[in-house]
């Protein structure tokens, strides 16, 4: 299909203005926030002079356009600035914390999908049966319990009462050494290094927060799977397939499920975005060194560079995610790439 690469390229081109817009908006937004970082960092005993000194050191005494040009120039060199609360370069901190958040979110989604999608399909093929009711109960429970509560409940049960889980602090127990960094995902890096003991340690740490987050995302995925499967199963093409003698498995998976996958993919993209944002609470409960808790801490102290870096990283992530969903769409649905003609 000549249409597909063209569609993908044009989607990438459409993403560029979004990135530029995000750079401008985050810059202006952080400047507009109340609170003066110079005052904060000069300390409680500072006088006018020392505050002005700090302000000059941070480059905040220059006019806004000049600050912006400096900021963009640094960005182009991959320099996101220095976090004034931790003293570390923002780029380094993000590079360390982003994989932690991504690993958690991806594993949570993987767990959630592997339960929600089969559950939705089963519920749709047997509407009104016990599977359908189970699906409904599980899903309602998943969304109605806030993540920090599920997290605490799981810790109480598996760590405090049963002692099955390790201390819920961080990505890896202090007994283990961090695996050699390749992707930043401990599970993958440990597996690449062949260090299965560390792999198991990392898994034991991540499993509870991942389940906590996954439970929360169960609902939208299984609901949309059920709804779009029901629609696909009552369609004309499924009737044709049945009338031609095709049986359960072929009809359900090759005809109905492939068509039902399209809305599921869209939902998956949205769920991924909101769970990246929502996992701040989970990170706090499990002392997970992720990007969410970093951003909250930076925001509290008006740490411009850190907040800007965080928002930019998230924006790029969302753009990449939407792109990935669009590309997945063109792979599943042959009609895409022709609609605009």
């Amino acid at each position: 299909m000549a249409g597909r690469p063209k569609t993908i390229l044009s989607r990438i081109a459409q993403a560029l203005p979004v990135v530029v817009g995000v750079v401008i908006v985050t810059f202006l937004l952080t400047r507009a926030l109340p609170g003066d970082p110079a005052v904060y960092f000069a300390g409680p005993s500072a006088d006018q002079n020392s505050i002005a000194e700090v302000r000059a050191a941070l480059g905040l005494d220059k006019p806004l356009p000049e600050q912006f040009i400096l900021y963009v120039g640094q960005l182009l060199h991959g320099d996101l600035g220095q976090s004034i609360s931790t003293g570390q370069p923002v780029a380094v901190e993000l590079a360390r914390r982003l994989p932690a958040s991504l690993e958690l979110t991806l594993l949570a989604l993987l767990l959630s999908c592997s339960v929600a999608v089969p559950l939705g399909v089963l519920a749709a093929t047997r509407p009104g049966s016990w599977v359908d009711h189970l699906c409904r109960v599980l899903v309602t429970a998943g969304v109605s319990l806030p993540t920090f509560f599920t997290g605490l409940a799981l810790i109480y049960l598996f760590y405090y009462l049963l002692g099955l889980a390790p201390t819920p602090i961080g990505r890896l127990d202090f007994l283990y050494l961090e695996p050699e960094r390749v992707t930043g995902f401990f599970l993958i890096d440990a597996a690449l290094a062949g260090d299965w003991e560390t792999w198991l340690g990392a898994l034991r740490q991540i499993i509870l927060p991942a389940i906590t987050l996954g439970l929360f995302t169960l609902a939208p995925i299984s609901r949309i799977t059920r709804a779009s499967m029901l629609q696909a199963l009552s369609s004309d093409y499924v009737r044709t397939a049945r009338a031609a003698g095709l049986t359960g498995r072929t009809v359900v998976y090759r005809y109905a499920f492939q068509n039902a996958l399209l809305p599921v993919l869209t939902t998956l993209g949205m769920v991924f975005s909101f769970s990246l944002g929502a996992n701040v609470l989970v990170e706090k409960v499990f002392a997970w060194p992720g990007i969410g808790s970093y951003a909250v801490d930076a925001l509290v102290v008006s740490d411009y560079a850190a907040v800007q870096g965080f928002v930019l990283a998230m924006a790029l992530l969302f753009v990449a995610l939407n792109l990935a969903i669009d590309i997945a769409y063109t792979l599943v649905d042959p009609r895409i790439g022709f609609e605009k003609r």
Binding site: D236, Y237, R254, Y255, N259, P334
Partner: peptide, 12 residues
């Protein structure tokens, strides 16, 4: 069936 286009799986 009637409506032949809808009677065929659109993505196969």
């Amino acid at each position: 069936f009637q409506n032949p286009r809808a009677a065929l799986n659109p993505i196969r």
